[in-house]
Design a protein around this nucleic acid. Sequence first.
DNA 1: GACGCCTTTTGGTCATACCAAATTAAGTTC
DNA 2: GAACTTAATTTGGTATGACCAAAAGGCGTC
Lengths: 243, 243
Amino acid sequence: MDSRRSSEPGVEGGRAADHVVAAIEAQIVSGELENRSPLPAERDLMTRFGASRTVIREAISKLSSLGLVETRPRFRPVVRKPDYATVLHACGNVVQHLLTDRTGIKNLYDSRVFIERALVREAAISARKEDIVDLKKALEDNRNAIPDSVAFYRTDVAFHGVLYRIPKNPIFPAIHEGYTSWLAPQWDRMLRSPERNEMNYLAHKSILEAILERDPAAAEEALTNHLKAAWEFVRVTFDWSEG
Amino acid sequence: MDSRRSSEPGVEGGRAADHVVAAIEAQIVSGELENRSPLPAERDLMTRFGASRTVIREAISKLSSLGLVETRPRFRPVVRKPDYATVLHACGNVVQHLLTDRTGIKNLYDSRVFIERALVREAAISARKEDIVDLKKALEDNRNAIPDSVAFYRTDVAFHGVLYRIPKNPIFPAIHEGYTSWLAPQWDRMLRSPERNEMNYLAHKSILEAILERDPAAAEEALTNHLKAAWEFVRVTFDWSEG
DNA sequence: GACGCCTTTTGGTCATACCAAATTAAGTTC
DNA sequence: GAACTTAATTTGGTATGACCAAAAGGCGTC
């Protein structure tokens, strides 16, 4: 194998690092490089692939942005088999640039409302016994945390999280993770109070009740009102004109 | 400015490239570096930031993975103000690793069904005159393309695309873009025929009819049947047992 | 103004070197 | 022998300088 760009015309555009990336990628998916284990040393990899350190480092950088390895400043990169959380995490860095203005935030929030409306419909139609148990449990935690705003926020997120788990599709919890982490910076600046907590608790309660009654339309409406009110609160807090 | 890692303890973890990334990032969002214009030459940036080429290149690599610049093998990086498409594109690289088995594909497809069910409901409830016009136009294109499978595929995607545009939220078209590009590899291996095209056309037609009648439930059902049938076709083609 | 040719610039890669932090080995203490 | 300290070594982060081939720019020709 020649380490330089291949002389074959047409094929191979001119990125030696890609070869290394592909090779390591393959070793990761094949399990040859175990999950959570450290990558070989850079100087090791150079001899293995017959490439310069420049190329090896670039490859590692790419693997990192692909979410296949986790790199900390002065530590060995750690193999990370990608999951849905990885995807959302990768998105997060880019998403941040779209949330600089209220429009971006509103769009993201609206999409969340859209998804959750569908989720509660789904819940009302096809929630299983275990799902109902989880929802009741989450609502109970919610109620108990009303006096403690920090704890309440956690249980609030958890309650919505249950909704995302009902379809038994790992993509949805990941989306929920995305929403909460991306919108967290905004939420952190909000005022919180036991009064508001109770209001949100009651909203959750009415959502659950509609689900228990197997009434999709009522559940959707309750959810919509809940999130509309939450947005209104955000809007007023930040003194945004409209939207 | 010292180009080496700062001696201040605590702050600054040890990444010179990050400083450069942040600076260029700021110049991009501020518009100082215009969209679609090329980045300064690497040797230029070295003098500007007092950093070595190693660092500059690493910074550019990071900017690329952040979607703020587009890099082609031997060309100057081009400034790219991030939009929703950028986000999905960034996700794409990671997503691919999750589609290696049928489970991953099924999860993604199911999430698409979930979203589109909600979209057609939305369409049935609140589609505007222009949306209706677009849908009719898309369906018409669809019909005309029945004999030509390649063209039909394009119009098929376009028809669904109209649904994603109805909420007037730029996030949804981006999601659609994601679905089509990520699932394209699977779709490309499917057999196509005027018969199947016509079947899909009729499915689209019944969806639109339900929307025209402002019947969310019927629209959702038509969409569900359409996508269920499509999946069934995929399943049989690849000879997958169940799911 | 369009096309072909030549020079310069510039991105991709390699080699080497240095430092400081991380890891490991060795030695010491309890 | 386990736990802790310390010295030796490995290893990631960065800098420099060099080379090549492909792009970009300049230039004269038609």
